[in-house]
Design a protein around this nucleic acid. Sequence first.
DNA 1: CGGATATTTGACTACACTCAAACTCCGTGG
DNA 2: CCACGGAGTTTGAGTGTAGTCAAATATCCG
Lengths: 218, 218
Amino acid sequence: MLFLAQDADIAPLMPPATGAAAIPITSISLKPRETLPLGTGNGELFYLLTEGCIALTRYMCDGRRQICDIIGPGRMFGFAIQGESQCMAESMTYSTIERHGRRTAWASLPDEVGRMLNRQQSHALLLGRKTATERVATALVDLADQFGRRVKYTRGRHVDFPLFPTRSDLADWLGLTLETVSRCLHRLRRQRVIEFTRPELIRILDFEELERAAGLRA
Amino acid sequence: MLFLAQDADIAPLMPPATGAAAIPITSISLKPRETLPLGTGNGELFYLLTEGCIALTRYMCDGRRQICDIIGPGRMFGFAIQGESQCMAESMTYSTIERHGRRTAWASLPDEVGRMLNRQQSHALLLGRKTATERVATALVDLADQFGRRVKYTRGRHVDFPLFPTRSDLADWLGLTLETVSRCLHRLRRQRVIEFTRPELIRILDFEELERAAGLRA
DNA sequence: CGGATATTTGACTACACTCAAACTCCGTGG
DNA sequence: CCACGGAGTTTGAGTGTAGTCAAATATCCG
């Protein structure tokens, strides 16, 4: 199938010109708590997380931090289309990333950009209108989805997942303080919705109840 | 210039096939407080606001509302790429919108999508980490940018703009209550940063101070 | 003028924040 | 092996910012 572009200046999301030199796929390894600035993007570079966990963070001039998204394996980020994204990528654990150019990233870009936009809007709803417990519950639903493995037991289904972000990271994601996050997790545990013996290994006992606590169900 | 697409299924942000029937540009007029659902988008339809003011809203199942963005003339929205956007567009005043298909929207899509993503991330920072007064100040800076006309006076520069969202709309945008929004506006007025005699006509007296109050400057 | 809607202002409350201390979990080195 | 130290987490007590409820005022429009 053949497409004709009327204007060569509408670059960023355009398909790569067949003659242009392709940016090779290169692999990047990050240790926990390393940082990858995304500001330089000119619409040429995209990143695919193949393993680990990455946070997209923004900082205010006085140092306040907001985590815009927590990213799990299989997701793309760094759509620094036009201008700078003002976001940094921070690894929450050992992570590997593939750097792609337009040519190799092209096919998945629309879906990934759309997914990102949708997530940012859901997150605005969380930050603007949900209570502390609802926020924490919503976060757990999301992380279970991105990092969870379903485990079948004799009585019901559990979901286990590693909680890569610390309490402080969760706080910066959810617009709370780390103490409040800890208290909400405690509450959900006391209600037998989740359980954990180590703070970074979560088991969801009652997924429906968790979604209810997250404000996702009546 | 000629581009070759390897896969016809990577549709949404692809350039329109030259042979395909183009969706004509049609114009939509909205009265204040009308609603345009965006959920149906299949990556074929995009909207350009040519006049007025539109809010992108999300609702929780219990009715809580979050305004994800306030949109002024010249901006595009409705990138319901893959799946539904779960957002509605609500007019804040008399507005006219152009409905575009892929063919006519194509050139501006990358910039507009990037702008939207950037705004959503800034908004997350606002909702998660800014105080009430900072949020209101940030909103005024943004709205002045989208709706303001610079007016030169003998002493300094003022910016006047019509405030299309009500106090309640601002509250739903900023994650506050309408009373808090009103109190913050009052405070900024008492500090002579802004002034208004009618509640929907704002004049910014000291733009630098407003940006400082918004947490955008040291 | 009258009635509806939006805004302002006040008094009180509560949810989440701040500050502080204790506890757990690790890895390291004596 | 145990002691030590550091980072992260939990828990508690008290505070403060923004929310709630309510009433007064302003604005708009027939």
